[in-house]
Amino acid sequence: MSIQHFRVALIPFFAAFCLPVFAHPETLVKVKDAEDQLGARVGYIELDLNSGKILESFRPEERFPMMSTFKVLLCGAVLSRVDAGQEQLGRRIHYSQNDLVEYSPVTEKHLTDGMTVRELCSAAITMSDNTAANLLLTTIGGPKELTAFLHNMGDHVTRLDRWEPELNEAIPNDERDTTMPAAMATTLRKLLTGELLTLASRQQLIDWMEADKVAGPLLRSALPAGWFIADKSGAGERGSRGIIAALGPDGKPSRIVVIYTTGSQATMDERNRQIAEIGASLIKHW
């Protein structure tokens, strides 16, 4: 067993022997301040990774656009098919120029040779490549099948209805392509620590998230040296922004954090800054 596999296998073990965790309302004060600064709703939840206990939450059962955070769930569904012998990570998928959609920095470079399922998941999570996500959605049967996968996990809230990039439209009061912070946090925890996926697939999923290259201005910008984070960000229309993450000190994750916002007129930089400040408060009061 590799060191990384050992780390993920012992996530519940280490967490069980940690000192009790206590909620700190100071972080919620910052979440509410972010709402004021952005002029928009902000949803927040913080779960203990081992027990699933909610440590703090704000608007945990209000719907927010998922945006690209759905790509972690998508690759979880792909990995479940791999575990069941219905898919192979090494299978190569070929596609054409007509398949390319807006923001496809990886797939646009491989029109000639195609990409493997493993490479597509890596591109979808680490670079948020939209064509990679659409190609992977095709392998599982489309958005409705991802929703069905989530329902089978016990998540009857999260739903995907459309493809990239239309799913980022974020129309107010439109339930399409949305989740709730509580539902997303619980589902992410199941994917990373539950028995739904094999140990190898859980490790692969967290490795992809740990290698995320496009979430630097968010929670990662607030992390002290030595902290662990595996995350996936999302951005959408109407001032929408979000991030889902597993993080913790001492090089291992111990909490799940989900943050979503929508309806702001603020710039992307300002949305990023507010999420980073929430992260800084979380870490300060850990």
Rank of each mutant, 00 (worst) to 15 (best):
V117S: 06
P249A: 12
L100T: 07
S128T: 01
P249V: 12
F64R: 03
C75N: 00
S68V: 07
L120C: 02
P143T: 02
D212R: 14
T198Q: 04
I259Q: 13
A77K: 07
A246I: 13
P253S: 10
L192H: 14
V106N: 08
L167D: 00
T267I: 13
I229Y: 14
K190D: 12
T126C: 03
A245R: 13
G248S: 05
D83H: 05
L74G: 01
A235H: 13
V101M: 08
E108G: 10
P60Y: 07
A132E: 04
S201A: 05
P253H: 12
A77D: 05
I278G: 11
H94S: 10
D36K: 07
P181C: 01
K109T: 07
L74V: 09
I275Q: 06
M127E: 12
A183C: 07
D33R: 08
A132I: 07
T131V: 07
G154Q: 08
L74E: 00
E61P: 01
A235R: 13
E210A: 14
E195K: 00
A170L: 00
I45H: 12
L136N: 05
A276R: 12
E145P: 10
I54C: 06
G263N: 03
F58H: 04
T193Y: 05
A183P: 06
F149R: 04
A246V: 10
A77F: 12
F58K: 03
M66G: 03
D231V: 15
E277Q: 09
D113Q: 08
F228W: 14
A124V: 06
D155A: 09
P172G: 00
R238T: 00
T126W: 03
S281V: 08
E237W: 04
D174V: 06
E237S: 00
W163E: 10
A123S: 06
E164W: 00
R91P: 13
E277R: 07
T139N: 14
M153F: 08
T186P: 08
G52V: 09
P65H: 02
R162D: 00
L38R: 03
V258H: 06
E164H: 00
D113G: 07
S128E: 14
D129K: 01
V82M: 02
L205K: 01
V106T: 12
A230Q: 11
E164S: 11
D250E: 10
Q203S: 01
V78D: 07
Q265E: 12
G263T: 00
L79S: 01
V157F: 14
T138H: 05
K213M: 06
E62M: 13
R59A: 05
I275N: 05
S201E: 01
E270I: 10
V78W: 06
N173A: 05
T139V: 03
D33V: 11
P165G: 00
K232R: 05
E61V: 06
L73Q: 01
G234S: 14
A170T: 00
L38T: 00
K71T: 14
D48G: 05
R255I: 15
P224V: 05
G239L: 10
L282C: 13
T187H: 01
L150P: 00
E145G: 15
I206P: 03
E164G: 00
E108L: 08
I244A: 09
P165F: 07
T112L: 05
Q204H: 10
N173I: 02
T187M: 00
P143F: 06
L167N: 00
K30S: 15
S57P: 03
E119R: 01
F70P: 05
A245C: 11
D99S: 09
W208S: 06
G263R: 00
L219T: 13
R255C: 06
K109Y: 07
R238F: 09
E195V: 00
L160M: 03
E108V: 10
G226F: 10
L167G: 00
T186S: 03
S122H: 06
F70D: 13
I45D: 06
F149A: 08
S57A: 05
R271I: 13
R162F: 01
Q37W: 11
R255F: 10
E195G: 09
T267K: 12
I140L: 10
E277K: 08
A133N: 02
I171S: 00
Q204G: 01
G216L: 13
G142T: 00
R220G: 14
V82Y: 08
G142P: 01
A84R: 08
S240F: 14
Q204K: 14
D161H: 03
V29C: 06
R41Y: 09
P65Y: 04
D161W: 07
S240E: 03
D177R: 05
S281K: 03
S128I: 03
S68M: 02
E169P: 04
T186M: 09
R241Q: 14
R63L: 10
G248W: 06
L55F: 11
A34G: 03
P25C: 00
E26P: 10
S233F: 13
G279R: 11
G216R: 13
T261N: 13
R238N: 14
D83G: 03
A133P: 03
L196E: 07
E270T: 13
G154H: 02
E270S: 12
S96I: 04
E46A: 07
P105E: 05
T187P: 13
A123Q: 01
Q274C: 14
T178E: 14
K213A: 07
V31I: 13
G194Q: 05
P217M: 03
I125L: 08
W163H: 12
C75G: 05
L192V: 01
L196Y: 07
G39N: 14
V31M: 13
A245F: 13
K53R: 09
P165D: 01
H156L: 09
A40I: 11
T138D: 10
E175D: 02
A40E: 10
S122K: 07
M153T: 04
E35N: 09
